[in-house]
């Protein structure tokens, strides 16, 4: 509904996920949430729960162990949703680029809307990014957004399709 759309920007709730970062950017995120930078004045709440969040704040270059969780968490966030990649290593791999046990950035798995540079990125940048994310949030529809890769097919798809569709899907797969 048109009437409600402007309010998306006014209460962006975030989910923060660490996909193998060095914790530098995580500390900056916490600093941004703390009293000095006070993200709550924009209505931001750190929910810690994908089902009630709008903005997915990811740090880290995606280690092999964290890929599936990343995708699973992404699929559990109801649309409309925005992904913010915080820090250089999250956007491109950064200092970890080319290592044997990491992927270079999260956009190989999930679509990213806002990239924040910096190793570590600063609270000011994070606030900027969240404001930008709020705007993008407003322009999005409620259509299903899928990750680029699915791990553990059925459950993950099950997240996004209604039961009937899913039953059909499973059926088709079997044929």
């Amino acid at each position: 509904m048109k009437f409600f759309t402007p309010f998306r920007k006014k209460s962006p709730w975030i989910l923060h996920y660490n996909a193998g970062s060095c914790n530098g950017c995580d500390i900056e995120i916490l600093a941004a949430l703390g009293p000095k930078f006070d993200l709550e004045r924009f209505g931001v709440i750190n929910t810690g729960n994908p089902k009630q969040s709008d903005i997915f704040l990811v740090t880290g270059p995606v280690t092999y162990r964290s890929r599936e969780r990343l995708v699973e968490l992404y699929t559990q966030i109801p649309e409309p949703k925005v992904v913010v990649a915080v820090g250089s290593c999250t956007t491109t791999g950064g200092v970890f680029r080319g290592m044997y046990n990491v992927e270079d950035g999260i956009d190989r798995y999930i679509p990213v809307d806002v990239y924040i540079p910096g190793c570590a990125s600063s609270p000011q940048l994070i606030i900027d990014a969240l404001v930008k994310a709020g705007e993008i949030l407003e322009s999005k529809s409620k259509a299903i957004e899928k990750p680029f890769k699915l791990f553990g097919a059925i459950e993950t798809i099950g997240n996004k399709l209604s039961r009937l569709n899913m039953a059909k899907k499973v059926h088709d797969d079997e044929d």
């Binding site: 998306r8 209460s11 709008d54 649309e79 299903i144």
Partner: peptide, 18 residues
């Protein structure tokens, strides 16, 4: 801190979610 009407903003936003 957030605006006084923040809970209502949250509620309107929640109505607009999948």
């Amino acid at each position: 801190g957030p605006p006084l009407l923040q809970p209502f903003y949250d509620m309107f936003k929640l109505l607009d979610k999948r």
